[in-house]
């Protein structure tokens, strides 16, 4: 249970950073914290008490001892997607810094938000 609560707290910390921070880089960091929180949540859904990794590496390992592999596969995909979004976000931050010579979001807002 504590796993769920902690990962939700991580998500909330990330959202807080996105909402409150003024620095563009910190906002991007906030987005990745949110991603990590969601990934932790997904992983903890697949957890099994005293379970082991879902790899049949020894003959004595049976399926009954293993954790749910599906959330792990989903998280693998979600991590890569998060990486893609972060990369594009950082590229945009570089662009914005080029044009405005500042990282402060309040000084950049020209379009209505």
């Amino acid at each position: 249970m504590i796993f769920y609560v902690t990962s939700i707290l991580v998500i909330l910390i990330g959202i807080y950073a996105v909402l409150v921070k003024k620095n563009l880089i910190k906002i991007v960091i906030g987005l990745s914290i949110v991603d990590s929180g969601v990934n932790l949540l997904l992983i903890s859904i697949g957890y099994v008490k005293h379970g082991t990794a879902p790899i049949f590496s020894r003959p004595d390992l049976t399926a009954a001892q293993m954790v749910d592999p599906v959330p792990q596969a989903l998280v693998l995909t979600a991590i890569v997607i998060g990486l893609g979004v972060t990369a594009v976000a950082l590229a945009l931050v570089i662009r914005l810094y080029d044009h405005h010579k500042t990282m402060d979001i309040n000084k950049i807002r020209k379009l209505k938000w």
């Binding site: 987005l31 949110v34 991603d35 997607i81 976000a89 931050v93 914005l96 950049i108 938000w113």
Partner: peptide
């Protein structure tokens, strides 16, 4: 403005994917 619009879109879009 393009970079700013895209960044705004990205912020909102990230929330949607979360």
């Amino acid at each position: 403005d393009g970079a700013e619009a895209a960044f705004k879109y990205l912020l909102i879009g990230s929330f949607s994917s979360t």
